[in-house]
Nucleic acid binder design. Structure first.
Lengths: 151, 151
DNA sequence: ACACCGTGTTTCAAATTTGAACAACAGAGT
DNA sequence: ACTCTGTTGTTCAAATTTGAAACACGGTGT
């Protein structure tokens, strides 16, 4: 068993910063959305994705992939959003197994109301903290990280 | 009500990369630790913190702050780790209310066994994907993000 | 000594998340 | 048509997470 390649000082600093920042940012945004709009971050992202999607609808699996969540977790959240009238299920014409989640007018309205506060929170927690240069580096680096992990 | 400062193209790209990468990395590491060591990421981080701490022990609140988790959540996880024999509780001499979580020899051994695979996974998911330059930018940027959110 | 406010931890119920098992179907190859 | 293999979405039980409330105590000011 060969000695593992431990993280050097710089790598460890980057890893700790990554861990802390991601946890703190997520926690902050979760709280902001819950307080201001009564939505979880996952639910908010569902609405964002559906709102931006063609026809305001996406297949369950496609949506789960985009949100990086489990399929069963999405089933639960869509049920919650359906109860709240922000989303509804519609079966897929071309595939009997398939289910579309589609955003309702009320869902779009909820997004309109929640978005400004959320964007402000994202700015305050992350975007406005970084210089344009730092932001570009992070976009490129983390973009590559995400790309590779989707294989 | 003034128009919110929406994210421009670059900012949005950075935000999406951040969201995707953090979710994917967390999910990957969670899975690796569970498969290889039977630990959740939170549990692993508890062991890391205690192992590095002076005397192998930390107060509950201090530990919760470092892990960026709720105090009740930590109570639960420490109980789990205690059952597994990796950690034990010890009351604080100077403050009757206080509780120390202390790592056991078995806990240190578990860490020794789990660390190599975990480091390898961290490298594969994040560190080795980035150039030293990108890593430095991310460490600095996200370090600042974390620092600000701890206030 | 005493009242008061703040801190440290746990308990509790409710919400969420997960993977495995399941049921129903699609699609390719024969 | 038919068998196989892989997908799709849901259900289920178990594990985890959360905030609010409860509890017990510390520390300060009077």
């Amino acid at each position: 068993m060969t000695e593992p390649r431990w993280l050097d000082e710089h790598e460890k600093a980057a890893w700790i910063a990554f861990l802390s920042a991601t946890n703190l940012v997520n926690r902050r945004l979760e709280q902001q959305l819950k307080d201001d709009a009564g939505l979880s971050h996952t639910q908010y992202e569902v609405l964002v994705q559906l709102n931006a999607a063609d026809g305001g609808a996406l297949r369950m699996t496609e949506l789960a992939d985009r949100l990086v969540t489990s399929k069963s977790g999405l089933t639960y959240q869509i049920t919650q959003l359906e109860r709240a009238g922000l989303v509804f299920r519609r079966s897929c014409p071309s595939d009997v197994r398939g289910v579309f989640a589609e955003i309702t007018d009320q869902g779009r309205e909820m997004l309109r109301l929640a978005a400004p506060g959320h964007v402000e929170a994202v700015r305050h927690a992350l975007i406005d903290v970084l210089s344009p240069d730092q932001l570009a580096h992070i976009a490129e680096g983390l973009g590559e990280v995400a790309r590779r992990l989707r294989s």
